[in-house]
Write a protein that binds this DNA or RNA. Sequence first.
DNA 1: GGAGATACATAGGATTCCTATGTAAAGTGG
DNA 2: CCACTTTACATAGGAATCCTATGTATCTCC
Lengths: 149, 149
Amino acid sequence: MPAATDPSVLGGELATQAARFVRTLRRELDIPASARVLSVLDEHGPSGVTSLASAYGCTQPTMSALVAQLVEQGWTEKSPHPTDTRSTLVSLTPAGHSELARVRRLNGEHVAARLAEHPTLTTAQLRTAVEVLRVLVPAPETQTGSTSS
Amino acid sequence: MPAATDPSVLGGELATQAARFVRTLRRELDIPASARVLSVLDEHGPSGVTSLASAYGCTQPTMSALVAQLVEQGWTEKSPHPTDTRSTLVSLTPAGHSELARVRRLNGEHVAARLAEHPTLTTAQLRTAVEVLRVLVPAPETQTGSTSS
DNA sequence: GGAGATACATAGGATTCCTATGTAAAGTGG
DNA sequence: CCACTTTACATAGGAATCCTATGTATCTCC
C-alpha cells in the first residue's frame, strides 16, 4: 500500500489519518473537547483564560467557552487573580483530576486495544508519532507548569 | 517535558496533538473536509456513496452531504450505476484531480515548512506517524482501488 | 410477488471553533 | 491626575463538520 517518501504525500496522508483518528476517537470514546483542556491545566498549573488558549492552541473566546463548560461540570474553578483584577485563575478541582484520570484511562485502553491487534507497533513508534505531530504544529510556548495526578 | 512510555499517556498525548494538528491545518490551509474525500476517490476509483463512507470512515448521510458539496463544486460527478439503479458511481472530474493536486501541494508545503524548522525530523519518522495513526483507527476495508495523478 | 436487505436522501440537532465587538482594569507619558 | 493604549475576558452570531432517525426506491431470494 502507500509507502511514499514524498513529504507532500506524507503530509496529506498524515492530515487525513489524523482527522480520522480524532473523529473516531470522538465518536467511540465520547470525550468532549473541553476534557483536553484538563490536560493543559494539569501541565501548566492554574492559568488565565488567554494563557490557556495559547497553550491549548485555540482563540480566547473559544477557551472562555471551554472553561465555562468545565466550571459548570465542576472540573475546574475560577478564582480571582491576586494582583490583577481583570484576570482569573482557572484551576483543576479534585473532580477535575478524577476526570482527567478517567479520560487518560479511556485513551490508554483504546490505544492499548489497537496496539494489541498490531504487535509490530512499538510504544517507541507511538512516541515518534506524538513528536511528529507536536512538531507539525506552530507550538505556542513551552513554559513549564505544575504537576499532579 | 512529556517523554512517557506509558501507552495511556501516549494515547492521550496523541489525541491532543492530533486534534490540534487537524484544527491548525483547517485554519491555516482552509481545506474543506470534502477535499479529503477526493483522496479516497483517487485511491479507490469510482465508488458508491456507502462504499465511500466506509472507506472515508464516516456515516452514509455524512458522505451524501460531502459528495453533494463536491459535485456542486464540480470536483466529482455522479453517474448511474450500470446494473444497480439504486446506486450511483461517484467519480473524480478533471477539476477534481486538479484540486486534489492543489490540496496535496498545500499540505506538502505546510509539512515541508515545519520540517525545515526541525532538521532532526526525518521523513521516515513522518511515515511512522502516518502508520501509527492508520493502525489506531478501526480500518474499514483495504480493498485495492484505481490510480491516477 | 412479498419480506427483508441495501443504497441513498432528507430532517433536525449537537459539537466545536472562529471573527467581530464590547467592557473593565492595568499600564504609561505628560 | 488624566487621557490613551494595551490587556483580559465575555458575549453575539455564525460557519463547518458529523451524527441519529427516518423515509423511499430498488434489489434479492424464497
